[in-house]
């Protein structure tokens, strides 16, 4: 077990990068869904969609 860790400890970095990317993708999709829902509620009322919502505000 410790030998395995000694040989492959550097795998922490790529694996964590993948986890990071995955989490970011999931959070972004949930945010975009909520944003679309808000835009829809503006459109349903016949109001103009605020400019701040039109932006592609990724982080």
């Amino acid at each position: 077990m410790t030998d395995l860790f000694r040989q492959y400890w550097w795998l922490i970095f790529p694996v964590m990068a993948m986890v990071y990317g995955l989490v970011q993708m999931i959070l972004r999709s949930s945010y975009e869904k909520k944003k679309l829902e808000l835009m829809k509620s503006y459109l349903d009322r016949g109001q103009p969609v605020p400019d701040a919502l039109r932006r592609n505000n990724h982080f």
Partner: peptide
């Protein structure tokens, strides 16, 4: 970094929620 991402997401979705209640 992961924690920061989650709290940033929380902040933004809460902002959307408040905006939605204004829009409603």
């Amino acid at each position: 970094g992961v924690f920061g991402m989650f709290s940033h997401h929380h902040h933004r979705t809460e902002t959307l929620r408040i905006l939605k209640s204004y829009a409603d």
